[in-house]
Nucleic acid binder design. Structure first.
Lengths: 157, 157
DNA sequence: TAAGGTCAAAGGTCAAAGAAAGTCAAATAA
DNA sequence: TTATTTGACTTTCTTTGACCTTTGACCTTA
């Protein structure tokens, strides 16, 4: 936690609290943390991604600002979106898969324990395979898991 | 004794004390002991293995670090029987893996839901790979999951 | 007064540099 | 031989700065 990015992330999450939106000034924030303004963009694009359940809106020019919006969805919406996201590519990195799982966890679609198990399964360590194949394999496993979760949700509850 | 690896090992054990985790900086430690940074990796991979009851986590890049996690049980203690059944071969069929998971479920090591998820992951459908490789891959994933379960059991749930 | 011009104040982008840690194989020591 | 030590090279993540684009307030000028 010694890097500024993590600190800014924590600050934003904390400031946001339970609110759905948070509006801020890039320059103000940057000068508050004594960092380059583009550092703020870095934090936003690496931590507040759609995969993690956030979108960013902004306006340039005089009086411009940035707004962080937290998306919350029903499980069905989440599945649709995630499966969609997942279907577009024919492979997925561990980092990205991990973000998706974090988000599902945040939205209470799966438990933290479950997300940890699935992350383990999708990790580079678990998937001994050539790099080219690895991302495709990972995606395939992830899809299978999502479908299985859907099936189970349908049966139980 | 008298070799750096043993000294570093002792230092880490001592520093760790009774704590469950120890976070350190590879470069700092290396320069403290005036050794190559990769020496630290050597110590970690030879002495702080899962078999001996440790797991290593790490993060690269600015602000990166390494964390040593002590398991409350070694895999042998926890899954000795299971791993024994499994270790003879260097691969495992879906049927056999499935049986093991059922047993773990029965023994309340994992929930039914969790066992279903892991079964899905280990199914032939999820694991698109040449048959020869498939069983080995499956075993590797299964082992990773077992390790992860151990780690999670050590922490609060 | 309407249309367009100017300019400073935002925010955006991107690539290069920096900061860790990881890998691997050759050299060395026990 | 087996275990250790080293260092060159790789990968991942972060930080910074130079340059780009957009916007709105405030002019001109017909």
């Amino acid at each position: 936690m010694a890097n500024i990015s993590d600190i800014i992330e924590a600050f934003l999450l904390d400031t946001m609290g339970n609110n759905e939106k948070l509006t801020l000034s890039r320059n103000e924030l940057a000068s508050y943390f004594s960092c380059a303004p583009s550092q703020i963009n870095y934090v936003l694009t690496t931590r507040f991604t759609p995969e993690r359940g956030y979108i960013i809106e902004s306006r340039r020019g005089g009086g411009g600002s940035i707004t962080v919006v937290r998306l919350s969805q029903t499980p069905e919406e989440a599945y649709g979106e995630i499966l969609g996201t997942v279907n577009e590519n024919d492979g997925i990195s561990f980092a990205k898969a991990s973000q998706l799982l974090d988000r599902m966890c945040r939205d209470a679609i799966i438990s933290e324990r479950e997300s940890e198990i699935v992350k383990t399964v999708l990790s580079d360590k678990a998937l001994i395979a050539p790099t080219v194949i690895k991302d495709r394999l990972r995606l395939n496993i992830l899809k299978s898991v999502l479908l299985q979760l859907l099936r189970m949700n349908g049966e139980e509850d």
